[in-house]
Design a protein around this nucleic acid. Structure first.
Lengths: 164, 164
DNA sequence: CTATTGAATGTTATATCATAACAAGTCAAG
DNA sequence: CTTGACTTGTTATGATATAACATTCAATAG
């Protein structure tokens, strides 16, 4: 992957412009509520992720930032991304070494990601039951879960072979 | 992390020497069953992981390999590790950029890992219910899961603050 | 027994991802 | 207007991973 942008959004078409607006609106609210600062770089990174509507590598984000006149050194991107992840506005997809804007901000969801190995689409799946099962498993070992990365790869509907 | 070895095994003491023996025994059986080859490098890597009984970075494994007279270039380690993962003898912990020997080889488990953020212990938790929940979530989106990485970080029993 | 072939390993080189450390700017509180 | 906390910019380097090709090895077809 020379450019680690990965294709296409969730698996169904939808009103995309809505995503960006809603995401930014939530971000503004969060800023007010938590007293954290949505600075220009951070806001721009969130916009980039929302607009791309796909998982992006830090260096891809960085390239876009640089094009907009922000710093073009890796820490600039990584710091903004870290901020967004910390504050629930974005997620890190470890399997792809990539980041994606949160699709359901505000809901206390610990997300699960479904990653298509053919088209690289990434969907954020409803994960409450998954999280519950994880908690149960952890409880039997006395382990206290703080954060989780739940990622699965496979085939999205569009990439599955048609049944005969 | 200069050396990405991460500490200590599952959260309870146990007969450790048993692990190595059992793991290797399973590996031998698997070889016979699948017609794949457990070559010296691969076998040694598995031993290293079993003996370490913790998650190890590819470069840590490589160092040990080199000390045993095997090649000391990254692909040597990565290839052997990939083989072990593909064949269910080891797992990749993406959160740690590390690998660990499978603790329950042969059981068709899609494992979930609990990673202590203080002592770096990694436990392989019973994950059948987690996997079931993931499958259910995926089904609602028409996504077909092939492989999954289920990882959680938090505090292991030993590292949790004692209650007042 | 050798020639062929496919798999595995060794090696070189480089790509990709991530962060430490410090300098400089920004902004609000005192 | 100065202090102090935070953010951003920059330099440099560290850590992880793989592409590409050369070499070796083992099984087997001839």
């Amino acid at each position: 992957m020379t450019s680690s942008q990965v294709a296409d959004p969730a698996f169904a078409p939808h009103d995309h412009s809505h995503c960006t607006g809603a995401g930014l609106a939530w971000a503004e609210d969060l800023v007010a509520a938590k007293g954290v600062r949505l600075t220009p770089v951070r806001r721009r990174v969130l916009e980039i992720l929302l607009e791309a509507h796909r998982a992006m590598g830090a260096y891809d984000v960085l390239q876009r930032l640089a094009a907009d006149g922000f710093g073009n050194q890796p820490p600039v991107a990584y710091r903004a991304l870290e901020f967004l992840v910390e504050n629930g506005l974005a997620h890190r997809i470890r399997r792809l070494n990539a980041f994606t804007a949160c699709r359901h901000p505000g809901q206390d969801h610990s997300p699960a990601f479904l990653i298509c190995r053919l088209c690289d689409a990434v969907a954020e799946a409803p994960a409450a039951p998954v999280r519950a099962a994880m908690d149960a498993a952890a409880a039997t070992l006395g382990f206290a879960i703080e954060r989780s990365n739940l990622e699965a790869s496979g085939l999205c509907p569009a990439c599955q072979p048609v049944p005969a």
